[in-house]
Design a binder for these strands. Structure first.
Length: 732
DNA sequence: ATTAGTGGTGTTTTT
DNA sequence: CACCACTAAT
């Protein structure tokens, strides 16, 4: 069968397993996505199931999209009936279809974490809880953790005063969410889980439909997600779980790699299939990754190997400062570019987002195009948040969070005092702020301002009833007054552009191949009116806007290690490898924290195909002050022989035309006179071109005069020793 | 009601 | 340093 060609024995076995639950332990770069997609295609092609009966769960929208694309590349059928998505996306879909049974309004909205935090602050304030003594962030974490255990406030056990307090906040928070008709991220899952638990008809409906459930990144599932899967599988359906415990890097948000072990037991998985052949990286890179991860104790055990050669050594650069680190990276990037590597094939990775600043600055000054992933996303920008809040209020007037955000933005004479009065009225009557505003018990100027606001939102509502989605957006933004506001703002142009982009996002959303089309097959969602608006707003929360920048341009890729998971590049720089940064101070408490950091490093290492740089700096500006850092322990955990030190301060031996002055070491500063590079000819670190081997860089040198030889690392041909007298090297 | 300015505080990773 | 929450001044 053409579908199965080129699979290795383990992959083949996984793809063609019988209809029973299975666990695939798939190492980095071992063809995990291929196995997953090929299995789906194989199940369908052999007639074991229709597209209708497949449910595939991923963790990111990107992964879901890629999976769909690859499946449609393999099969001539349309993938319409197939459900492929994230846990959150799938739960959202189920809840929208059965909103009544789930006890939600049709246009229920989704709170992102910032919205959730704002709501918790509001609730705590109304309860007169001192947010200095009880940080709202802590309450947020408490609530989410409880929900991830499947626990409602009434079921949470409180041990002490603090947890008792937090439980009351949880209870009040949930009550407020229900009043407003909004759900947070975790609530999507919990609500869906409860819906299917309680409602036998729906449960049997979905169980009857999804005979095959496939789960990607199984190690990242939390308890609730695991329960959800178990519930959906029931006694008869099979779960095909693919995961890698060594790449579990989301414990901080509840992921439990232990779910893989539970799964093995609960679903009677006889034999775990291991995919250990790596098709991505060259040998040295894999050896480094294997050696590193061996320092972790909690492992299922697995060793990656490759049929490729060992390739280049890893390059380690120790900079004096973060600025010098950036400068080195810049030089190397330029070099790679000159050698023909596309910029989008080079990634700069760091532990935390704040580290991108210095790198961005250097790249910007050098005129190298780059793209930063993560950070603030499109739908999280304040102007977009404001526009969305208007839309949310239009879709669901009970949404107090949205109300508060826009009631006086742009300013329209409704100040803190008026808002307080509205809140009192709402609290007294047990209604939403919107209802309180409509009742309008205030007199004088404040009352008139509020009446005008109510009228504004109502005119938005009236106009939107039957308009197509993009026109709704245009219309609401137009009436909101946001545009004149940002026109007067000093740096408002970018924000105005983004507001325009919002309409484009809506156009894409309702277009033929957009998400609407995929969902509308059931007929429950149209591209017009409030249901479309609600769907779009959900989309905005669930997919905070990954494809904001021009994807087509060839740009250097900057991102955190977390967001690099699942990606691969020709060349990878792992930067800021310093104790305190990576491993990060806040995580290295306890064995588990450190092991997760090490897995993070493992993920970083295994992103590279051919070339891998490790860099760190002795001093670094962080939080406004200079910190002195020592090299990360993770560097030491990689065997010496895999690493080539390219540190300029230690290995700047210079070469004359006649030979080398090798072994020449500079101290901290360049106290010794600098040899004239142009006159002496060759220099360690210099880029050269060889007639046969192509371009490379001089790594080290040996001997003098006629015996002089250089070690050159060629981009494609790998490491070579060349006699200077015979090899016709040309400076690059 | 809005603005500017002050001081205190906390900082990882993200569906 | 960057983001708040709060205060004083307009």
């Amino acid at each position: 069968m053409a579908l199965l060609e080129g699979l290795n024995p383990q992959q083949l076995e996984a793809v063609t397993l019988a209809h029973r639950s299975a666990l695939i332990l798939a190492g980095a770069g071992s063809g995990k996505t291929r196995v997953l997609t090929t299995r789906i295609a194989w199940l369908i092609q052999t007639g074991q199931i229709g597209a209708h009966g497949v449910l595939a769960v991923t963790f990111t929208n990107k992964a879901a999209r890629e999976m769909l694309m690859r499946i449609s590349g393999m099969l001539p059928i349309n993938t319409r009936g197939m459900w492929v998505g994230t846990f959150h996306g799938l739960c959202n879909r189920i809840l929208r279809a059965h909103y009544r049974d789930a006890g939600l309004p049709q246009t229920f909205q989704i709170l992102d974490s910032a919205d959730q935090l704002a709501m918790i602050k509001r609730v705590m304030k109304s309860m007169n809880i001192d947010d200095g003594k009880y940080p709202p962030k802590q309450a947020q974490h408490f609530i989410n953790a409880a929900k991830e255990q499947g626990l409602r406030a009434a079921k949470v056990e409180a041990f002490d005063d603090l947890s008792r307090k937090l439980v009351t906040v949880y209870e009040a928070y949930d009550a407020q969410c229900n009043r407003e008709g909004v759900v947070d991220f975790t609530e999507l899952l919990l609500r869906c889980f409860e819906l299917l638990s309680k409602n036998e008809i729906l449960r049997e409906h979905y169980r009857g439909r999804f005979k095959h459930i496939l789960v990607d990144e199984f190690q990242d599932t939390n308890r609730l997600q695991y329960f959800w899967l178990k519930l959906l599988a029931g006694p008869n359906n099979s779960i095909f779980g693919v995961g890698d415990d060594d790449q579990s890097i989301y414990a901080f948000r509840g992921a439990r790699a232990g779910n893989m072990l539970d799964f093995e037991k609960d679903f009677h998985v006889g034999k775990v299939i291991k995919l250990e052949q790596n098709y991505r990286s060259q040998g040295n890179i894999l050896d480094a990754a294997n050696a590193l991860i061996r320092h972790n104790r909690a492992r299922l055990g697995k060793n990656l190997w490759t049929a490729q050669g060992s390739g280049e050594a890893l390059r380690l650069y120790e900079a004096m400062t973060d600025l010098e680190e950036a400068r080195y990276i810049l030089d190397e990037v330029k070099q790679l570019k000159n050698e023909g590597t596309a910029l989008c094939e080079i990634a700069l990775l760091y532990r935390s987002n704040a580290q991108s600043r210095v790198l961005e600055h250097a790249l910007f000054n050098a005129g190298i195009s780059y793209r930063v992933y993560g950070g603030l996303r499109f739908f999280e920008r304040q102007e977009i948040k404001h526009a969305l809040a208007y839309l949310r209020l239009v879709a669901n007037p009970q949404d107090d969070g949205a109300f508060l955000r826009v009631v006086n933005f742009p300013a329209r004479g409704i100040g803190d005092r008026s808002i307080e009065q509205l809140q009192d009225v709402a609290a007294g009557r047990g209604t939403s702020l919107w209802q309180a505003a409509c009742a309008n018990t205030l007199s004088g100027k404040a009352g008139a301002s509020i009446a005008a606001f109510v009228k504004l939102i109502e005119s938005m509502r009236a106009a939107c009833e039957h308009l197509p989605l993009p026109e709704i957006i245009d219309h609401v933004v137009d009436l909101s007054g946001l545009i004149p506001y940002y026109q007067n703002e000093r740096e408002g142009e970018g924000r105005l552009e983004n507001l325009g982009e919002l309409t484009n996002a809506a156009v894409a959303f309702v277009s033929a191949d957009g998400p609407i089309a995929q969902v509308s097959e059931g007929g429950e969602i149209q591209s017009q009116g409030f249901p479309a608006l609600a769907a779009f707003l959900a989309h905005a929360s669930l997919e905070a806007g990954e494809h904001q920048a021009a994807a087509g341009a060839d740009a250097l890729q900057l991102m955190t290690v977390h967001s690099a998971k699942g990606l691969e590049f020709h060349a990878v720089f792992i930067t800021g490898l310093e104790e305190g940064l990576f491993p990060h101070d806040n995580s290295s408490s306890g064995q588990d924290g450190l092991e997760e950091e090490r897995r993070l490093m493992y993920v970083a290492l295994t992103r590279a195909r051919r070339r891998l740089y490790l860099t760190h700096a002795q001093t670094r500006m962080l939080h406004g002050q200079t910190r002195y850092n020592i090299a990360s322990r993770f560097v030491e955990e990689i065997p010496e022989e895999l690493i080539q030190r390219v540190n300029a301060t230690k290995f700047s031996g210079f070469v004359s035309a006649a030979g080398f002055e090798s072994g020449f070491e500079r101290g901290f500063e360049a106290k010794a006179p600098k040899p004239d590079t142009a006159a002496s000819g060759w220099r360690v670190g210099q880029n050269v071109v060889h007639a046969k081997f192509g371009s490379g860089v001089i790594i080290s040198a040996q001997g003098r005069g006629a015996d002089a030889r250089v070690q050159v690392n060629f981009r494609d041909a790998g490491m070579k020793w060349l006699a200077l007298e015979y090899a016709k090297l040309v400076p690059a």
